[in-house]
Design a binder for these strands. Structure first.
Lengths: 325, 325
DNA sequence: GTGAAAGCGCTAACAA
DNA sequence: TTGTTAGCGCTTTCAC
């Protein structure tokens, strides 16, 4: 028979290796869809696992049972390691997993881990600093931030980048221009509607996800403003784009593919860790590769702001760069 | 020790049960995010599995390796059964899985299976027929359909419902009012923009997903039309809503929670099948429960259309039902 | 090299 | 009921 595969339970018993990796995805809000970023990351990881004979064991856990999910999988010997999703700024799972003793890789980071650990992340702070700086260079002074829940490290770091750029430009922070919450279209719409009706409304938005940006766009349209002439938007995540003078110009390119890459690479990191009997000193990888770039593309009457690395230029539309607040 | 769990590999070897279910999710388009419906279904299934001591093994497979994914998992004895996602109208996996011999449950249906099989589905045809009929009752005659890829059974059935309603109302089909493709915001935006610039544009849209509806809304705003006054939209899937006279009135309620329920129930069906040594005659369940309902809610000057079952009424906003084309 | 045997941690069948 | 034992299908070791 040529379609024979060794029985995975027997192999597992004999070798002590489960040949499986656990992904425990927290569902923070019962009404919320599972974050599409997870799906993309998991898709990348799945590909790597397949190539190495590993399985991906997925558990969707509600907050109160999250710890149990890790403990069960480990105690049953069902997995050889874990990918940790959606790290909070301070995350109980760091201690838990050190306790459990299986190797793990974090997709993202925590603020201040007691012990070193492996992670893969994008440079959220730098990306938002660049995004904000770009808008500042274009003359914007009222720049709104619509961010994810800032108990999560990624959102917190994004805010740090936003604040850093404003502070460098000596623009004061305005609490009324900063929203955070569940990354939904509704958040974008509600927050933007509210801000646009202010006496001194923002002239630009930075959104922490694609879907939030859609909400912002809807609010702008409903406020009978025009994208590009009256308001600029930079969105982040799925489709980093910069809206400009009646045109939409892709500005930041990230994530569909880079999140998938992160999944592939995170899985590879973990497989390497599992391979070493000794749990090696933890590694940190690929920040550079996943950093988000920005550009204005080929501009007829204006140069690409110097703050933006040239090698990140990825614009396929012409910029009409008369968009000023 | 009270935190003891029997080793799953040993148990599996001894019992011949893997205590795991395989979910193979096809990634049809490399650029596409994994369908959020999958995530919701999987979340529901995961919950059921946890309650019964099963694991969920997830594989994201590209088209050419999809068959291998099933075969591998089965040959390795890694799973006791499968959930089949995203069935096409004619789907090679039906034969494949009959061949493999493990029980499976399909989330959705195929057109014409050679053998009976277990599935769980919503009533796509009826839902779209009702949606379309509602618009017809309101006086619309130019009703556009923006649908998923019609090689997939769910999209095909939705189209059948749409066509049935039009045909019943003796409204001729117009090919220029029917689009289908990947369910993205861009599809909604492109298709709607194009249709709204027709000489005889549609006065209402039916969209096959939440994200598509967002694209339609953006196109409408950009065309300087007003939702409810100039154009009506019914969207389907994540957040079935009906847009009306300057207000947004939830009309169809479905899916966030019902897709999750479908996941729970589908998993339960499969666990039951696995439990029976004899592969029982396949069952079909819960069409009714997952059927999408529609209503106009409490209307000040108009009754709920009779075509809409009263027990599906789920409106939490007041309808101002003067919206006519 | 090639082949036989022990054992991984359980379950199930059997004996007492 | 409770205790003992023979496998489940592999890998690994050890003897040849």
């Amino acid at each position: 028979v040529h379609n024979y595969r060794a029985n995975s339970r027997a192999t597992g018993l004999a070798t002590g290796r489960a040949m499986a990796i656990g992904h425990v995805i927290p569902v923070l809000n019962r009404n919320d869809v599972v974050n599409p970023i997870f799906a993309e990351f998991v898709a990348g990881a799945s590909q790597t696992y397949s190539a190495h004979g590993y399985e991906l064991i997925l558990t969707i856990a509600e907050e109160q049972s999250e710890g149990d999910a890790y403990r069960n999988l480990a105690a049953k010997g069902a997995v050889d390691g874990f990918i940790v999703h959606s790290p909070r700024r301070e995350d109980f799972r760091m201690d838990l997993l050190n306790d459990i003793g299986l190797p793990f890789v974090v997709h993202g980071r925590t603020d201040d881990p007691a012990h070193p650990y492996s992670w893969i992340d994008m440079n959220n702070k730098q990306a938002f600093e660049q995004a904000c700086k770009l808008l500042l260079d274009l003359g914007h002074r009222r720049i709104a931030l619509i961010n994810g829940a800032e108990t999560l490290n990624f959102a917190w770091r994004r805010r740090l980048g936003y604040e850093a750029a404003l502070s460098q430009a000596k623009v004061a922070l305005d609490n009324e221009l900063m929203f955070s919450g569940e990354l939904t279209e509704e958040l974008g719409h509600t927050a933007a509607s509210q801000m646009l009706s202010m006496l001194n409304p923002p002239t630009a938005f930075i959104a922490s996800s694609y879907i939030v940006a859609l909400g912002i766009k809807r609010a702008i349209a409903q406020a009978k403003l025009e994208m590009g002439r009256d308001v600029s938007v930079i969105i982040h995540d799925d489709e980093l784009s910069y809206f400009h003078n009646h045109g939409e110009v892709p500005q930041f390119t990230a994530t569909r593919s880079s999140v998938r890459s992160a999944g592939e690479l995170g899985a590879q990191m973990l497989i390497d860790l599992v391979g070493q009997a000794v749990l090696a000193p933890q590694s940190r990888l690929l920040e550079a590769r996943l950093t988000i770039g920005a550009s204005t593309g080929p501009a007829p009457d204006r140069q690409t702001p110097e703050s933006i690395p040239a090698d990140h230029v990825q614009s396929d539309k012409t910029v009409m760069d008369r968009a000023r607040p």
